[in-house]
Nucleic acid binder design. Structure first.
Length: 199
DNA sequence: AGTGCGATTGACT
DNA sequence: GTCAATCGCACTA
């Protein structure tokens, strides 16, 4: 059996920003027919309540309902008609907010991820939100699932202790663009984004 | 019912 | 560095 128990919902910190920091260094585990694929979270972004850049800003819609679930549920949507984005709901039920997982350091099932991505290079397998969703074969069918429970996709952890966590503006948004709500493992080669946001 | 636009990526100059 | 691809959805009427 997989020695990767899910994180308990009760151990998730309260609040979107706290969760975004907390998730750095944790592990995303994906169960596929071919086996397990997993990766360590090295970059996140917080989409807080009242955030004009957040999908929950204008209230609940057919797309974003999962953002209003209890903390630790998956919100998956298609961006630019091209790439799926994996988020974790982050506030009490009924409050819409989430944390975008932006990059993973591949751990297990690397051949599976290479197949899913159609590339070999380790560094590019899950560096970027659309890439990591593709590597783990995440799509809308996983929208709303509980990430604190073993299933097709869940969150876990090991004894890894993250190093220094950097903070910057978020990538690719225009509204509320000045807020420092992106978090990343400083110096980690699997982090996405321009060099200007790496310091 | 029609329209404009992204929480991106990959290909190309 | 620039730029097109691609489509679901939220918004307007």
């Amino acid at each position: 059996m997989p020695g990767q128990p899910p994180l308990a919902r009760s151990e998730l910190p309260i609040g979107t920003v706290s969760l975004a920091r907390y998730l750095i260094g944790k592990v995303v585990v994906r169960m596929l027919p071919e086996g397990i694929a997993s990766g360590r979270i090295v970059e996140t972004e917080a989409y807080v309540t009242g955030d004009a850049a957040g999908h929950a800003y204008r209230g609940m819609t057919p797309r974003n309902g999962a953002l209003f679930l209890a903390p630790g549920h998956a919100y998956v949507y298609l961006a630019y008609g091209i790439s799926y984005m994996l988020n974790v709901s982050s506030e009490a039920p009924g409050i819409g907010a989430g944390v975008l997982i932006r990059a993973l350091e591949p751990l297990e099932g690397i051949p599976i991820m290479q197949m899913n991505r159609g590339i070999e290079r380790l560094r590019d397998l899950a560096r970027g939100p659309g890439r990591l969703a593709a590597a783990l074969r995440v799509d809308r069918r996983l929208d709303g699932i509980d990430l604190c429970r073993e299933g097709p996709l869940w969150l876990s952890c090991d004894d890894y202790k993250p190093g220094e966590i950097g903070q910057s503006v978020r990538i690719g948004i225009s509204r509320d663009a000045n807020r420092l709500l992106r978090f990343y493992l400083r110096g980690n080669p699997f982090v996405s984004g321009p060099k200007s946001l790496m310091e």
